[in-house]
Amino acid sequence: MTSRSALSALRPGRFDWTGLFFALFLTIVIAVPLLVVVTWAFTEVWRYPSVIPQQFGLRFWHQTLSRADVWEALWISIRLSATVTLLSAVICLPAAYAFARMKFPGRDIFFLSFLASHAFPKFGLLVAIAAIFLKLNLIATFWGVVLIQLVGTLMLMIWIPVAAFQAVDRRMEEAARDVGASPLRVFWSITLPQAGPTIFAAVLLTFVSTFYETEGAWLIGAPQIRTMPVLMISYINNQIVVQYGAVLSVILWVPSFIALMFARRVVSNGGFAKGFGA
């Protein structure tokens, strides 16, 4: 496949039909649903069988944004995501370094156990945890949701940084020891900056995935702690007004869009690929 498309790239006259097909296919699969959602967000009246809405407008934006619970949910979501990401980084990065660089008994089993939490059917795990949280009075509290979401971030925040730390050339670290840096200083000045771009990508992914996490937030947090995605679900469940969901979806794009912009900078510097050993 690759050799063939490389060949056709060499021959200027030939048109790459396969490439065009894939491009079109991906556009339809990815762009059309997005387009529909965005269209709904700016629609006031859209009745079957019309292909385009009868009336466009910002009425539902006013209605959504004037609701206090939307702003409250947004604020909770941001606070939750930031707290979870920070805690996850504090717990996982040193652990990832230990997995990547140190030898200790049970290392491999321990490492695999992070995968195990993701191998379970997640909802079952959540219900079991919820039962424990009920006894600990953590249900419907901010820290209860933080804890449950933290579990979900562990794998991402361990596995990607482990790969990043392993990709750092040991000689670089030894050279730093050689010129007088203590092990801690080597980690801070050499290892972390070398693994930095990849770790940054992992942190970003953690933030975004926490922001959109629904099951745990709903099961543990409801009814007091309502994050944006949970609020969206309740809107869709309670009132069959498509526009509420659509408007919230468009709003929820903002954090992931910002994240993508950052990620692009990292990727275009080549740092992302370098972290994975390319």
């Binding site: 000689r171 670089m172 030894e174 020891r177 840096a181 203590s182 000045s189 900056p193 070398q194």
Partner: peptide, 27 residues
Amino acid sequence: PERRPTGMMFQSHALWSHMNVFNNIAF
């Protein structure tokens, strides 16, 4: 190593690629 009066030059040069030449030497 950090407390030994030795200086080592590695096979793969092991320069720190996130620093420029000046900072590599100045570290």
